[in-house]
């Protein structure tokens, strides 16, 4: 095998490590993106019987955002198996207990329930903050683009930026500043 072909072979079957910043991202929208990388769906060599998925490191999973009041509308069900063993946990309650779990379940539920799913999930590394072990971080060679832009808070702008931003209305002359 020629040297070029050999390198091409390595490059094709090597596992790529991606990193994704989940701050201000909807976990259910990001799950649809992350699953493509985890299962290798974007690769031309993809086949269900061909295990070609990549590793994905997700950081800042504690800062995920849900639309509207979905933190109190989304409910996670669990049953212990015993009579009366059902329990319903609100999304914000689950997020308080473990800030990685909402995203993990979102990715897990976005994939079909087959024998590969558990092994695919092992390639997903979720961290609640931006601290990633160096052994994992040194593998990373790609960053996955965020789905929605991160909003900037008003107190993060400088005073000059706020003052010199184009103004739509002026205060009337008889207005008392408060």
């Amino acid at each position: 095998m020629a040297a070029l072909k050999r390198v091409q072979q390595w490059a094709t079957f090597a596992r790529v490590w991606h990193i994704f910043d989940a701050s201000w991202q909807n976990p259910f929208e990001s799950a649809q993106v992350l699953k493509k990388y985890l299962m290798g769906l974007y690769k031309p060599i993809y086949h269900p019987m061909n295990e070609c998925g990549d590793h994905v490191i997700v950081i800042n999973s504690a800062d995920i955002a849900l639309p509207g009041d979905e933190w109190v509308k989304r409910v996670y069900f669990h049953h212990t198996g015993y009579p009366g063993g059902a329990s319903w946990t609100l999304a914000w309650d689950l997020h308080k207990k473990d800030p990685t779990l909402v995203l993990k379940k979102a990715v897990y539920n976005s994939m079909d329930g087959n024998l590969q799913r558990r092994y695919t999930m092992e390639r997903l590394h979720i961290f609640p903050d931006s601290k990633v072990p160096g052994a994992l971080m040194k593998n990373v060679s790609n960053q996955i683009r965020q789905i929605r832009p991160m909003p900037k808070r008003l107190d993060e702008y400088t005073e000059k930026e706020v003052k010199e931003f184009p103004k739509i209305i002026d205060l009337p002359k008889d207005y008392i500043l408060r």
């Binding site: 955002a65 849900l66 639309p67 509207g68 109190v72």
Partner: peptide
């Protein structure tokens, strides 16, 4: 307090 501390966003079309 409670769930209000977590990040949320809104859809203007609503």
């Amino acid at each position: 307090f409670g769930w209000k501390r977590y990040n949320k966003y809104f859809d203007e079309s609503t």
